Simulated assay, not measured.
Amino acid sequence: MLRLLAFLVPLAILWFFFPIFREFWWLAAIFAALIGTSISMLFLRRPLTEASAAIVERREARASTGQEDADAEDAVVDGESETRADETRDEK
């Protein structure tokens, strides 16, 4: 929401206070995007860092859960292969 505002406010200022940008709306959009990006990088760094940290934590949680499942499956498969190997030894 704040990032959208960082784009829309400069866009509105460019349109209302600089008449040339009413004709070249695409140029106003480019300048507003550059200004919005700059504002976002300067003033909205903390929310970006917090969001990134939350994403990393969720991915690590999913990876550890997936690894536990994989380990359990490997244990079951290894147990079955050992049982089969014992059965073939008994048959010989």
Results as ranks from 00 to 15, higher is better:
L48H: 04
V76D: 15
T37M: 13
I35K: 06
L42H: 03
G66C: 07
R46D: 02
T65F: 05
A70Q: 14
A75S: 07
I35P: 06
D69F: 14
R45F: 04
E80W: 12
S38H: 12
E50C: 01
V56K: 04
V76P: 07
A75T: 08
R59G: 07
M41H: 11
M41T: 13
S40N: 07
I55S: 05
D71L: 13
D71E: 12
A53P: 01
V56T: 09
R45S: 02
R46H: 11
R58F: 07
T65E: 12
A61C: 05
D69N: 15
A54D: 03
D71F: 09
G79P: 09
E57L: 13
S40M: 08
I35W: 12
E57D: 09
L42V: 09
E73R: 15
A70N: 05
R46M: 02
V77Q: 07
V76L: 09
S40G: 02
E57Q: 08
D78A: 03
D71V: 11
L44R: 09
V76S: 14
I55H: 06
D78Y: 04
E60C: 04
D78N: 11
G79N: 09
V76A: 15
I39A: 04
R62T: 06
L44E: 01
L44I: 01
F43W: 01
R59M: 15
Q67F: 15
I55Y: 03
S52H: 05
L42E: 02
A54Q: 11
A70K: 13
S38A: 15
E57N: 07
E68G: 03
S52G: 01
A70F: 05
E73N: 13
E80F: 14
A61F: 12
A61I: 00
R46W: 01
S52T: 00
V56W: 09
R59N: 13
S64M: 10
R45M: 04
E50V: 03
L42Y: 07
S38Y: 15
V56R: 11
T65H: 10
T37Q: 12
D74R: 14
A54G: 13
Q67A: 14
I55P: 04
G36H: 03
L44Y: 02
A72E: 10
A51H: 08
A72M: 08
G79Y: 10
E73G: 08
E80T: 11
D69M: 14
A75I: 03
G79R: 11
L42G: 00
F43P: 00
R58L: 03
E80V: 14
A54H: 06
G36V: 05
V56S: 03
R45D: 01
A53E: 00
G66R: 09
A51S: 13
R59E: 07
G36L: 02
D78S: 11
E80K: 14
V77T: 04
E57T: 11
P47H: 10
R58V: 10
E50F: 01
E60W: 05
A70L: 10
D71I: 14
A75Q: 05
Q67W: 01
D69Q: 15
G36W: 02
A61D: 09
A70C: 10
E50H: 13
R59K: 10
A75L: 08
T37V: 14
S81Y: 11
S81A: 12
D69V: 12
E68S: 10
E68K: 15
I35F: 12
A61E: 08
F43I: 00
V76C: 08
P47E: 04
A54I: 00
A61T: 07
A61Q: 10
A72Y: 04
I55R: 02
